[in-house]
Write a protein that binds this DNA or RNA. Sequence first.
DNA 1: ACCTGAACACCGTTCAAGT
DNA 2: ACCTGAACACCGTTCAAGT
Lengths: 211, 211
Amino acid sequence: MGGRREEILEVALAIADERGLDGVSMRAVAERVGVTPMALYRHVGGKAELLDAMVGHLLAALLPPDRDRQETQRWDERLAALARAVRTMVRRHPWAAPLLFSRPAVTPDAVRTVDVIYDALIEAGVPDREVPRLERLLSTFVIGFAASEVSGRFTSGDPDPRGHRGSLPEGDFPAHARLKPWLRLPDDLATEFEADLDDVLRLIEAAAGRR
Amino acid sequence: MGGRREEILEVALAIADERGLDGVSMRAVAERVGVTPMALYRHVGGKAELLDAMVGHLLAALLPPDRDRQETQRWDERLAALARAVRTMVRRHPWAAPLLFSRPAVTPDAVRTVDVIYDALIEAGVPDREVPRLERLLSTFVIGFAASEVSGRFTSGDPDPRGHRGSLPEGDFPAHARLKPWLRLPDDLATEFEADLDDVLRLIEAAAGRR
DNA sequence: ACCTGAACACCGTTCAAGT
DNA sequence: ACCTGAACACCGTTCAAGT
């Protein structure tokens, strides 16, 4: 077992972690495997399929292997644990962030993850009709937060960048002026993530209450 | 006025709309402008700066030009209108979705948009301390929803794709089996977006109530 | 000031050929 | 079955040179 395909996948993951997504070229992977670029096409269809397989590999490691542990936690604890696992995964492998937005969850591992979320939402009392929508709302937020964090979207919303012609005219942004004491982004976003998660889980509770 | 830089920007936007983000190469833009690729570097620093300018152009068109209109709407109406404008923009220019996650809002237009959101959140009664966090929560959701929609992440979460070796074993996904009647994604996601928006605005109201 | 030509160091992928 | 070599049609960017 093992085989060339697994070797190619592991090499691609290693390069992505070291040099980012742009570092993952068919030529770079081939060189590390010790083979000509063309030899890869026997085992992986093409670059798009390779990237899909890389994301699939991360998603497969998202759920704990033991199914029993799930029963011992409340629905909101299970969802929070999964959300934290996604954030940790993206922080560890920032190259995965853009890819998570581009492909639907169709691999068995991805569907299993969605099934776990569905199960928690049902246990929360969300009406069946609303479960898929709230799963998409939750996962959109979690992936979006993690992607924003690692890509730098959250850094420096303060209208005083090092940029261009001095700082921006502060008078034009009254709300920014008023909020000045609160505009500095915390170094670690874990606390903000927890607060957001709490709010979103309350949102789910409220939706369950309307059933 | 006008000038080469504006011309380059307009050509780049046109190519992105026609052929997607991958179609926007310095060489393709230069050819359409009628000039050598190197000539672009006098006016736009490089490709990264060109992409930033393209996103900036879209953001500049996001807010209505008349400032008065804002005062006539309630805070939640203003946030909903802005959220719908972002979704419309991304649906019209899908190439912008990945870029919205990668750069912080530092241009004057982007900061003005954030200021409008801050103002609405303050009017909603959100404590000053919490305003920046809820702005990030709201914008993360809105951009994430739009990005998911145009990139195909929302399509076919049903574990029965046309894929690979038949369909996935349904017995392994009990929640999917139970929710089968509700798993088909609606053709138009506008209704889902409105429901999500409603939930997120209630979340904001709840945060305001805790002040 | 603005543009060109040639070059460097890359891409993904096809195709025919080798063993 | 698995791999190679050469080629095609591309990239972004630097640098020296032209007007």
